Computed example of a mutant assay.
Amino acid sequence: MAQDLGDMNYLVLVVDDEPVNSMLMNKYLQEMGISCVLASSYTEIIESVKNHDFDLILMDYKLPDRTGIEISDELRVNYPDVRICIQTALECEEITERVENGFFAGFISKPFRRERFYREVRAILKNIQ
């Protein structure tokens, strides 16, 4: 079941162009007591980041206008402390290297598994308490 994250009020940006994936992550985050904002395009991501102070961004790798890596690189320029967790069905060397070197705070594989999703999100958020 959902993992207790204490009394912290977290805000997460969920980035995915597939509505089913966004809604599933939204549901899981709500079960964990976490608020979220949904974005499905580059423009929505940039606008959301300008208007909110996110504790975590769950970034899809494959988006219609750019890759999650390209957008993450750009976000790091203006928001160097933002925590980004890449989520994808792909496993490639570039993603693995960026997780290992700390560029990405974590990796969530698709298809989503509830308990694994909880563990990864909880681990990332616990590190900022």
Rank of each mutant, 00 (worst) to 15 (best):
M1R: 03
D4P: 04
D4S: 12
L5R: 01
D7H: 11
Y10T: 03
L13G: 04
L13T: 06
L13N: 02
V14H: 03
E18M: 12
V20W: 09
S22T: 12
N26T: 12
Y28K: 04
L29R: 00
Q30D: 14
M32D: 13
I34E: 08
I34F: 02
A39P: 07
S41G: 06
S41C: 11
T43G: 03
E44M: 11
I45Y: 03
V49A: 03
H52A: 12
D53A: 11
D55C: 06
L58P: 01
L58N: 02
M59Y: 01
M59I: 04
L63P: 02
D65L: 09
R66K: 14
G68W: 07
I69F: 06
I69L: 11
I69C: 06
D73I: 07
R76N: 14
V77E: 14
Y79N: 10
Y79P: 01
P80I: 09
R83W: 12
I84F: 05
C85A: 14
Q87H: 13
T88V: 06
C92F: 03
E93D: 14
E93F: 09
E94G: 03
E97Y: 07
R98P: 04
E100L: 10
A105Y: 06
I108P: 00
K110Q: 06
P111E: 10
R114Y: 14
E115C: 06
E115Y: 09
R116Q: 13
I124M: 09
N127H: 09
I128K: 02
